[in-house]
Design a protein around this nucleic acid. Sequence first.
DNA 1: GGGCGTTGTCAACGGCATTGACAGAGCCAT
DNA 2: ATGGCTCTGTCAATGCCGTTGACAACGCCC
Lengths: 248, 248
Amino acid sequence: MKARVAEQAEQPTSKRRAALTRESILEAALRLCSPEGGGQLTFSRLGKELGADPTAVYRHFRDKDELVLALTELTVAEGVELARTTLPDGPTDDWRNWLTVTAESIRASYLARPVVAVLAAARTTASPAEAGSVELLISVLHRAGLPVIEAAECCRQLVDLTLAMTQYSAAFSSLDPATQAKDEAAWAVKYAMLPEAEYPLLHESTPRLTELFRDDTEVFRMILATFLDGIALRIERSRQDRPHQRVF
Amino acid sequence: MKARVAEQAEQPTSKRRAALTRESILEAALRLCSPEGGGQLTFSRLGKELGADPTAVYRHFRDKDELVLALTELTVAEGVELARTTLPDGPTDDWRNWLTVTAESIRASYLARPVVAVLAAARTTASPAEAGSVELLISVLHRAGLPVIEAAECCRQLVDLTLAMTQYSAAFSSLDPATQAKDEAAWAVKYAMLPEAEYPLLHESTPRLTELFRDDTEVFRMILATFLDGIALRIERSRQDRPHQRVF
DNA sequence: GGGCGTTGTCAACGGCATTGACAGAGCCAT
DNA sequence: ATGGCTCTGTCAATGCCGTTGACAACGCCC
């Protein structure tokens, strides 16, 4: 039944308004979630965007949560796809580049729709695209010299680190600009008033910290780099302990 | 004027209900924010907790945002205090322990009130307690061999990493239990259905990944450990490059 | 003791997600 | 073709939320 309805939706022969579909709703929602879209996802805005009654959406999604979950799946799928096109096809030893590109692709996809990141980055997405990506990540790390289980652990760490940092950034960038400005001003005032005698090191670092203030992307890159250095150390240790363990 | 009112509040001689104070409101709000408090912070619940009209709070806080910001300040102050009591007094070379305790203290304080973490972990807190803590962290890293600016950068990384991971955890744990269970079930189903032939490594890792699923604390410890390994590498590099740079 | 600022109360507004009753449109079997 | 069925969009209403403005009681200072 549902299939038939979906087909019909692609050829709106009836007098009814452009028939709503799961896809058309998701597209509209994604439009609203983009930074230009207004930074808020509500049913009334969604209804206006679709030219339909807000409550019509309930015919296709049980509640807002289900809608948001579908949006996250689209988002991670896009992130995985972005990483796939950027990375080389065949097997590679460049695990560091591989992890970096994956993390930054996922981050970029989420930050293109901060609302989605804020609402659901902490939710589990059962997207199939993700599994393939994780499998590849594990294989890359295993190739680099890590035991499979440890590679999986590192992968999990990388994913959580990335999602957490993304949600963190998105939470700030989806505040209204006035609040952002106020927060930034408060921070500047606080650091300007620190007595140099009491906080000599902090005072010396203030220029650099100011540069970094809310430059989420730069901070994320730094954290990621440090984290990958840690992974490198693990790989090195692993190789020393069991130099002949490599499978490939 | 305000000071006078505060004094009076400590001796409620009047017939009026237990006079509201900034402090009493904050205490009540913290009670509501704790996991036992119900996991939701609304003005009506707050009014009920205080035995007063919900709108009375507006006489002490301009809006909810200001209230939440005050709660965050209390929370980070508590976290810093917790770290201070745990750590040794004098100077130390155990930078790794220092950073670990600081990060976990802040995380623990936030997670005692997940609501606060969700609502405001991405906001800037101009708390003075924080500055002292950061100054100390920089000095510890500097002592360990890092140039001041680089130490400050690492400190910034550590703070953001911790706050992001905390917000990430809190976002999940402050969902209603039904949703949590549903997410977990969906994840389990997804992984149980992965064809072993296509995802051999993932399949092999599933038991460990299941253990780790939503065990936020363990994942956080692992990420922190890896991150600190990265810092260790930087320190080592720094010492090799400029072995006589150390100030202490 | 008479103003006056401070503080708690009350009623109301607009926005939000969600629900249930209703209505039109396509589809099927008779 | 017609009656009934389901699918889908509409409308009105509910309950919770943050927030506001008018009002009233209280305590302070002159």
